[in-house]
Amino acid sequence: MNLPKKVKIVEVGPRDGLQNEKDTISAEVKIELVNRLAAAGFPNVEAASFVSPKWVPQMATSAEVMHGITRRPGVVYSALVPNMKGFEAALEAGVDEVVIFGAASEAFSQKNINCSIAESIDRFAEVARAAKEHRKRLRAAVSCAFGCPYQGEVPLEAVADVVRRFRELGCDEIDIADTIGVATPGKVRPVMETAIREFHIEGLSGHFHDTYGQALANIYASLQTGISIYHASVAGLGGCPYAKGATGNVATEDVLYMMNGLGIETGVDLDAVVEAGQFISQQLGRRSVSRAGNAIAAKRAG
């Protein structure tokens, strides 16, 4: 199959990438990062999370960040929203897209939130209705679609079931996520084809973690199925909580370098993203984990 000629890259670094950082990152640094990423040309930046600061202290400044950023026309600013309290805060902060979530693994759902998959998604029905009433985009993430730290293999029918449930809630976009980074290219195709049977392909996205170094290969396998939306995190921000010391999100710079090499249009300026990646890595006091980002930065430093 021919690869898509154009893809949308959703930049998730400011939320998914930074949320597990132990040292507090100031709202000013987060605002600067979001502004740099939006200026680089991303059509969608996941900028905040309206969860309880008790559970995710790093995201306590989300309202301040959303009020402080320079809004660029045409850019969708997204936030993770777990409940109606979070939705109301997101609405007040001017979020464009609400992100809800559910696992394809029954064991993961029980271990994490002490309820079944069906119950967890039912809890989002009110948030979904409110998002639609307020004309906000609604996106859902299907975590552990390729494997689970507790039960191992995840049946294809479980993925199909969660995608159907999110479709019925009226989601505009659904992310198929390799939360623990265990997927390999051979596994990607059947999972994505299962999702495609349940939801329109233009609204499906791949969210691949690089825990075992497979993310770029998995994105390529996903491109072969026709999926044209991908999530990535600048500088590879975000570890994997289930694999000690492992990287989590695939680095945006590496994804862009591959897309450019394949002649696939992204509308994003790789050089500007490299600069943003070096900026946030300096703020965090460590080296970026993006190989392409570090190579381009070193070449530029000459």
Rank of each mutant, 00 (worst) to 15 (best):
P82Y: 10
C115G: 06
S290G: 07
E88Y: 11
V182Q: 08
R167T: 14
S52M: 13
E173R: 15
I31D: 12
S228Y: 01
S281L: 07
Q110S: 12
E193S: 00
V75I: 11
E193M: 03
F124R: 07
A276P: 14
I174W: 11
A272M: 11
S26Q: 01
A292G: 03
P73L: 01
G13N: 04
I176G: 03
C148N: 04
L284W: 06
R167A: 15
S228D: 09
C240Y: 03
I201Q: 13
P57Q: 07
T61Y: 02
V191F: 00
R165P: 12
T211N: 07
D96T: 07
G203F: 08
F124Q: 14
P14Q: 06
V98I: 15
G236Y: 02
W55H: 13
F208Q: 10
E119V: 11
M259K: 02
A89K: 14
S62A: 14
A232S: 14
V274L: 12
D175E: 12
P185D: 08
G181Y: 05
G238I: 02
S143G: 15
E198M: 09
F108C: 08
R300H: 03
D122S: 12
G285N: 03
G102R: 02
G302Y: 00
L3H: 10
V56Q: 05
D178F: 11
A145H: 04
S205L: 05
